[in-house]
Amino acid sequence: MKPEPNPRLWPGDIYQTFKALRVRQVAYVPDAGHTQLITSCQADPEMAAISLTTEEEGIALLAGARLGGQRGALLMQSSGVGNCINMLSVPLHCRMPLLMVVTMRGEWGEFNPWQLPMGQNTEKVLQAMGVYVQRATHADEVGQIVNAGAQLAFNSNCVVAVLLSQRLLGFKDWSK
């Protein structure tokens, strides 16, 4: 297996964006691609890192955070997007901001065929629900795109998903 490039800098860029924008509640269902970011948020005394049993809980949680005057972000992998669809009714109908940061599976050199149905349709189903989708494919653009997506969500009271391409995580060769 080819080693992934180390150190990986873009999770730190996302964390710095969260800090700069006063994100206080970070809800997540873990993904390998979010490991560093989750660790950073857990270590930050100004942030609550909230582990969920399923992704749609995070949408309801962050609706409550919004009611209470705090900003949040929701981390998941693309398989979790499917769990969220009806719950998106809450921020969409109530015109609440929601920032989702989604690590993609089922695209760049995917080794698990079960990931393909959701991964190949993540963007389509989000857009069908009225979510604004922005995608980052290269490491050096991640921070900027998350920042722009967050500004869009928080300043325009809309639901934004930033998709982090599987290519960012590098290619895992499971063929041998």
Binding site: Q25, I59, A60, G64, A65, L67, G68, G72, S89, H93
Partner: peptide, 21 residues
């Protein structure tokens, strides 16, 4: 705040509010 959608959301919405306040 009365939810009239998002079935299953109530308790978690309360949690987000409780953490914020």
């Amino acid at each position: 705040f009365c939810l009239w959608g998002g079935m299953g959301a109530a308790a978690m919405t309360g949690l987000g509010l409780a953490l914020a306040q």
